[in-house]
Amino acid sequence: MSWNEFIYFAIGSLLFWISGTILIYTSKGARLGNILILSGIVLFGSFIVGLWIGKGHPPLRTMGETRLWYSFFISIVGFVTYLHWKYKWIMGYSVVVAGVFVFVNLLKPEIHTTNLMPALQSVWFVPHVTVYILSYALLGAATIASFIAIKELKKGEYGLMPLIDNLVYIGLGFLMMGMLMGALWAKEAWGDFWSWDPKEVWAFITAGAYLVYIHARILKFRLNLLLWLLPLAFVLLMITWIGVNYLPAAQGSIHVY
């Protein structure tokens, strides 16, 4: 399987996701809605598996490939969070974000050489990238929740805070794992755990921002200021993921793809 077949899987999954999400808002169709959303996830996942087999290596190297995983994970994160916390909007949001990344991939397919250079041939490759993308998906969901929480705060409501904190904790857990595994890999590949490569600097900045958030939460800082840290941290995260390649300070990064 190759990117040529992506459109069928992408459109199919989106149709499942959108119709499923509409159904969960109705009282009768919730069960069917869940089944449809799950089918969309399975269909999308099967494309990733097919692409993996077709390429002969995990599709994790190019920006387009990481976007593929992001769509996949955000739909799972949204679905699991919705099942656990019963917030329907999180499913709706996840579908929108997954859709955006699907369309970016459809409109701007990045076809790259399929050859994996020796430094990327490592057992760390798959866990390092997937764990990062998964954490981006979780932290993206936390960001949207933070906007809603900022609105609710004005009415004196704090109901979303446990959800936000949990998403940040789990997201940060994955972010830290991604960073640690990257460091262990770097040691095997070129002798240094950490070399302040631009992508590393930005990954550090992102982790720093979320660390400030969770410590400030424990210390009960005022929410009307602290909640704005989450959108800000997510902007930093997006720079780490996508923006780094365009920064003047980042020319010559080993993470450019």
Partner: peptide, 25 residues
Amino acid sequence: SGTLSVILLAAVTIAALWMGLVPGN
């Protein structure tokens, strides 16, 4: 102190921002 940790974490993050934004720093 916990507030000390938050201030230090924020300061280190800002230093890293400088590192990430200013070429040749």
